[in-house]
């Protein structure tokens, strides 16, 4: 699917909502079976995962349906604050100002780590470069390194593929890779970087273009792209991204994925989150190429 994913999901969820709304209105006072709907909005990185959870959970518990919409981590958290969603998905932690805004509304969001995600650095399969250190990747994305030759590759210009600035992955990658985790750093993505509207478009550009480098959640990498092994610096070990290396902490660009609820979850929402963190829920995490929580 190449449609802007969040838009596609907006549409899908809209189509989902229509019958729900009418059935809600219709069931008032009648003897219709009680169904619970959990609204789940947020991170585009997590949208496929959240959909898979929602579908599997609905099969187990037909009385609960979860409606999943993308839009980005910020969208999800904003929706949680203004009360239009029960659960917000976020591929980054809530920002301080978001937490303050929530508290002003008398809301205290609770954070749940539901899976882990490794950010893979991907190149075209024809690219001979197999490993890069984080400082090298930072130089590439800030525009200090512009030719693959400087990294041991062919004499080709480097084309940077990035997510749009509203993506949680963009922010994470900027803070932890481009700025090397240094909070005083003022480094920014090079203005030459392509800001692509979805993970799929990044994957496509990298698959088609031998000059391109991209970054994306491990779950979105296919055989059409090649992941590079990443090292913390030039001297240490270079580690390929995989479920094992993320769980044992050796792969350096990995992050938790969050779900936020307003206040401690209760009832159907609590059961849903518990199920997500169960073996069964975590198996879906692995199936989609994300990294299951350790100890499950």
């Amino acid at each position: 699917m190449l449609l802007h994913r969040s838009w596609g999901h907006l549409l899908v969820s809209f189509l989902f909502f229509l019958p729900l709304l009418t059935s809600c209105a219709g069931s008032e006072g009648s003897e219709a079976p009680v169904t619970t709907t959990i609204v789940n909005v947020g991170s585009d990185t997590m949208v496929n995962l959240a959909l898979a959870w929602a579908e599997a959970y609905h099969e187990l518990h037909p009385e609960v349906s979860v409606s999943v919409t993308g839009g980005g981590s910020g969208t999800g958290i904003a929706a949680l604050i203004n009360g239009s969603t029960d659960v917000a998905n976020a591929s980054r932690q809530m920002k301080e100002e978001e937490r303050q805004e929530a508290e002003q509304q008398g809301d205290s969001p609770v954070e749940h780590v539901v899976a882990l995600d490794a950010i893979a650095v991907i190149v075209n399969p024809s690219n001979p470069v197999d490993q890069l250190s984080i400082p090298q990747i930072a130089d590439v994305y800030t525009g200090r390194t512009t030719n693959w030759q400087e990294l041991g590759g062919d004499d080709r210009p480097i084309v940077l593929a990035s997510r749009e600035s509203n993506s949680g992955t963009y922010v994470y990658f900027l803070e932890n890779v481009v700025r090397l985790g240094d909070s005083d750093s003022e480094d920014l993505f090079s203005p030459e970087a392509l800001l692509l509207p979805s993970s799929e478009v990044i994957g496509l550009e990298v698959a088609q273009n031998p000059n391109a480098i991209g970054y994306d959640g491990l779950g979105y990498v296919t055989a059409a792209q090649k992941t590079v092994d990443v090292g913390v610096d030039q001297h240490g070990a270079f580690v390929p991204p995989s479920i094992e290396t993320v769980n044992d902490g050796t792969y350096p660009i990995a992050r938790p994925l969050y779900m936020y609820t307003s206040g401690e979850p209760t009832g159907a929402i609590k059961e849903y989150l518990d199920w997500i963190r169960s073996d069964e829920g975590q198996r879906i995490v692995a199936e989609l190429g994300f990294v299951p929580l350790a100890g499950s």
């Binding site: 190449l2 480097i158 088609q208 273009n209």
Partner: peptide
Amino acid sequence: GIQVVSPLVREFSGAPTGL
């Protein structure tokens, strides 16, 4: 555009990317 035109633009113009 993304599937057909952009690869053609890259190949024929020699630009680093077709986008």
